[in-house]
Write a protein that binds this DNA or RNA. Structure first.
Lengths: 210, 210
DNA sequence: CCTCCAAGTAATCACTGATTACACAGCGAC
DNA sequence: GTCGCTGTGTAATCAGTGATTACTTGGAGG
């Protein structure tokens, strides 16, 4: 049970953490595609097989890193829009929503490879560890705030998903094909305005269902 | 210049095409991740090195396949919403828009690995060959139709990009985290309604700019 | 007919993911 | 203390991979 002990234990110390942070920094330096377990071990001054004491295979390592990616994203959210605080007026509610979207889009842009890993076939572990609220919950909170000031109607689950989709899609595509290098922040703000516009309408759902 | 000749030439014949279609079918059978040039060559009854006469490296093959993916997507569009026909009334314009979104989302769902390849780091070649209109142009046409019946306002480039983002994000995420197995078509329709709602508002852009 | 060149082969390099048998430190039990 | 056990790392090895090279082949064109 010495796994949680962060000091150097006997041979290398905390290899597991070292491998993870190595991979993480590889992702942030554009070197994820040519990351190999062996190179990581080499750079960490350890034999190739050692890594397999901590991860059953390479994908397990990548999955762990993807999971940490979600933690990092939550941290970004927390910095941009503290989860425990609340907007005091309509303008601030709007601003918080935009800030959240900006944080998401920025993350996707700055940490592209990590982001791809997170939403690639190895990621997708819904909410994951760390006790932090998930993107989805964070977004939900912002929407409820917007609703509380009458900016949008009461958010249903599908509204929340729509908002997420729109922001996620924007972050994935990053730029319209027709414009080379758009002012990123303005683009995100514009999209937020669209989302708010959509969610401020009377319920299409009930109208269509009848 | 025998490269365009589709008949069997002398040794294997059209290896290039065979490699491409092998890769394509691998992608459609969930075997893209363990595709290897050697295995492809083996299954095609050819030596490993032969492939490198036709593609400088593995990524080049994958890029070609990604490009074909965009062609296939355009074909799907053409089947769902023929590019040369037009809606005759508002209802049909709406229906065409929904059909386009459904085609997009269906493609992302049914041919997931190919789709991931297309929008992954190897894809992204904007519009590509085959002379077909791109997704972006197709969408633009649908929006213009919607506008022509007064359903939305005149589509600006940013409107078009917003619509694409929303549909793309939906297709990438596929389902809200809270719902296990949503009725896919209804979900897409709902999203389309949201997009239309957003684009039917007076221009937020000009209002914000002033 | 003969030459030339696209298209394939065989052999090889460096490297990778993964498994196995082994070594060794430090801990608690006795 | 020493015995043994478990966690952690090593060394060696296997099968498979992307890629390159030198060599062969077979059909089309002069």
């Amino acid at each position: 049970m010495a796994e949680t002990k962060p000091s150097d234990a006997h041979h290398h110390g905390n290899l597991k953490e070292a491998l993870v942070s190595y991979t993480l920094s590889a992702a942030d330096n554009g070197g994820l595609s040519d990351l190999s377990v062996r190179k990581a071990a080499r750079d960490l001054g350890v034999s190739p097989g050692a890594a397999y004491r901590h991860f059953p295979d390479k994908n397990a390592l990548l999955r762990t890193v993807a999971s940490l990616g979600f933690d990092a994203l939550a941290e970004t959210f927390e910095h941009a829009v503290p989860f425990d605080s609340s907007a005091r007026d309509a303008k601030e509610a709007r601003a918080r929503f935009v800030k959240l979207a900006l944080a998401y889009s920025d993350f996707a842009h700055r940490r592209r490879e990590l982001w791809r890993l997170m939403f690639g076939p190895l990621g997708r572990s819904p909410s994951l560890a760390s006790g932090r609220p998930s993107t989805y919950e964070w977004l939900g909170k912002c929407l409820i705030e917007l609703a509380s000031f009458g900016i949008i109607k009461d958010p249903q689950p599908e509204d929340q998903f729509f908002a997420w989709s729109a922001i996620h899609g924007l972050s994935d595509l990053q730029r319209p094909p027709t414009i080379a290098d758009p002012p990123q922040d303005a683009l995100v703000e514009r999209h937020c305005a669209f989302v708010i516009a959509a969610l401020s309408q009377e319920s299409y759902a009930s109208r269509a269902a009848q």
